[in-house]
Amino acid sequence: MESQWSFFESAIRGLKEELGIEAKPKELHYIGVHYGAFEAEFYGKMFRDRELSSVYVYTEPVEIENLKLQKEEVEAVRWMDYEECRQKVHDGTMPNCIYEDEFRMVGKYLDRVSVGR
């Protein structure tokens, strides 16, 4: 199993490769581990996903027009209200975005942070 540091390094590398964000270690906030699994048809073939992931939140300002999307990994990026996004994840109108329980982890973190301000 990968160490926590390996997940952290992967998160920093993924932000750079997939979005062009050069995050500093102190800018990523660890919020927990998530196990996800699903099966679905994807481009006409059965796709099975089983993954263990560490979940981080990046809270620095981001300008969408400055992002450099890796076309093989990221189709599009857009801003939306947390509750609107939660509903789209829940009802499946924004597929392959994030697991619903993983999204709730992010929401709990954001609630804790906003209470502490």
Rank of each mutant, 00 (worst) to 15 (best):
M1K: 10
A76W: 00
E27N: 11
E18S: 09
E63H: 09
E100V: 08
E39P: 02
R50S: 07
E102V: 10
G44M: 09
Y109G: 01
Y58C: 14
K45M: 08
A40N: 04
Y82L: 07
K16V: 04
L28V: 04
E39L: 09
S6G: 04
R50H: 11
G20Y: 04
P25V: 01
R48C: 11
G107W: 02
N96F: 05
G116S: 14
V55H: 05
Y109E: 00
L15C: 13
E65Q: 12
K108L: 08
I64A: 08
G36V: 03
C85W: 00
K24N: 05
E63N: 14
K24W: 03
E39G: 03
F7K: 04
S6K: 12
E83V: 01
L67P: 10
Y30C: 00
R13Q: 13
L110Q: 05
G116A: 15
A40G: 07
M105W: 05
L52H: 10
G32H: 00
E102M: 11
K88A: 13
H29T: 09
I12E: 03
P61T: 10
E60V: 07
C97E: 05
D49N: 14
L19Y: 11
E73V: 01
S3H: 06
E60D: 07
Y30N: 03
E17M: 10
Y43S: 10
G116T: 07
E18A: 12
D49Y: 12
E18H: 13
Y30D: 06
K71G: 11
V77A: 11
V55L: 11
E39K: 14
N66A: 13
C85V: 12
Y58Q: 04
Y43D: 13
K26H: 06
L110C: 07
N66W: 12
G92V: 07
F7M: 04
V57G: 14
V74D: 09
T93C: 06
F38E: 07
G20I: 07
E41V: 12
K24F: 03
A40P: 02
F42I: 04
Y35L: 09
W79I: 15
Y56L: 06
Y99S: 15
M46H: 12
R13A: 09
A23R: 10
S3Y: 01
R112D: 08
S54K: 11
G36S: 13
R112P: 03
F103Q: 02
V62N: 09
L15H: 05
V77M: 02
E72I: 04
K108M: 06
P61M: 04
K108W: 05
E83W: 03
E9H: 06
S53V: 13
L110N: 07
E9L: 10
M1D: 08
T93L: 04
Y99V: 06
V33I: 08
L67E: 02
Y56F: 15
E73S: 15
G14V: 03
V113C: 01
D91S: 01
Y35C: 02
E17F: 00
W79K: 07
Y99G: 14
L110V: 00
R117S: 06
K88Q: 14
C85R: 00
H29M: 04
L52P: 05
E72F: 01
